[in-house]
Design a protein around this nucleic acid. Sequence first.
DNA 1: CCGGGTTCATACTGCTCAGTATGCGAACCG
DNA 2: CGGTTCGCATACTGAGCAGTATGAACCCGG
Lengths: 215, 215
Amino acid sequence: MNPAKASGCGKVVVVSKRNPDQTRARILQAAFEEMRRNGFRAASVDQILADTGLTKGALYHHFPNKAALGHAVVDELIGASICHAWIEPLQSTKDPIAGLLQLLESIPPEKLAAVAQTGCPLNNLALEMSPVDDDFRQRIEAVFRAWREGVAERLRAGQEAGYVAADVDCEQAATFFVASIEGAMGLAKNARDSSVLLACVCGIRRYLESLRPAA
Amino acid sequence: MNPAKASGCGKVVVVSKRNPDQTRARILQAAFEEMRRNGFRAASVDQILADTGLTKGALYHHFPNKAALGHAVVDELIGASICHAWIEPLQSTKDPIAGLLQLLESIPPEKLAAVAQTGCPLNNLALEMSPVDDDFRQRIEAVFRAWREGVAERLRAGQEAGYVAADVDCEQAATFFVASIEGAMGLAKNARDSSVLLACVCGIRRYLESLRPAA
DNA sequence: CCGGGTTCATACTGCTCAGTATGCGAACCG
DNA sequence: CGGTTCGCATACTGAGCAGTATGAACCCGG
């Protein structure tokens, strides 16, 4: 019997036997974790396969080479993750400054501790790959650009609604916001100390509140 | 004849024949440049030697292994560079906020363009090596700590002199300052765009000026 | 001027890694 | 039910890598 049919529903989830989509997803996920540990160039294809229990035949069936695998990790996992964590939650807020602060200050301590260990996967890859692989660089840049523009757009909306001072350059402010967050994650990662993140959240709060209209 | 004696001055500079200190310095410099291009792990010992015209015998005479070479680059070149660029110039200033801004805004455009290509070597190494080599991590952390403490100390002095508001946590502010700069360099490197740096300088200016005492 | 430590060059080793060639069973299609 | 394509496993190759073994030229103290 076909186990896929046996599940008998529209969204079929199969563990056993042939399931190329799931196989591809497993490779992607394991590649993401290996890249988070070791970066892209030091990421071992053999290690990724050992983690998944698959073999080279599977990997090179789904991806032409290691670079394409890395590109897919950026596009499909990291890009989606950034969008989910930093852009989508802002869509519902009227006051962008309050929204951004809420985003930062509602991060649970265990998540802060995790970030202090790994840093931001996007920035890690950016600093490693941008000088040596322009294809990587452009895909990472697309994610950064979406992030910056997502924040800038909300700031502009908040500006028209009177939550942000009229003389603020919203693209500039969004760029600085993103840069500060990435810088904070990098410092915290090297220090292995989540209190660095708390210090930077205080700094960002002070900066964001300086964007308010003069009372 | 000994070419060292032939130069006939106190500060002897010799190109030819035996000069172990200069040989070591050449290796260090070439290693620094190779690490700036490729990071540490992808830095090729053979490439470093090709750049210097030396061979493995020379390198492994001066350094026990590749890791020790990397450590020396951090301690002797990068650490000194950070100190020279970001800590020493502050020592003479009374007003730390003005001093820090002066430091940022007096960077010539060609230097900004260069930074937008390479990023900050310290942060590049930090993100690459901190998860995989604790010795590297601690040496990098020492540099970051000196930087943060150097800035914090000046902020405290400025606080006592009335240039900085009394309620400012100077360590926190220094941490955020360093994080913002590193974040800005990283974003600019990936975007290959020095205007990102200008945007972040504006952000840092706004932040620093928010540290002033209420008029 | 002459041993001995210093400073480097040359040639080699073993390992890790991305990528390939090939084959085989399962699924799908007529 | 036969054939063809898909999905993946196995075994291998060649290149690049850090590190080593060895030796030779140099410099200095005696």
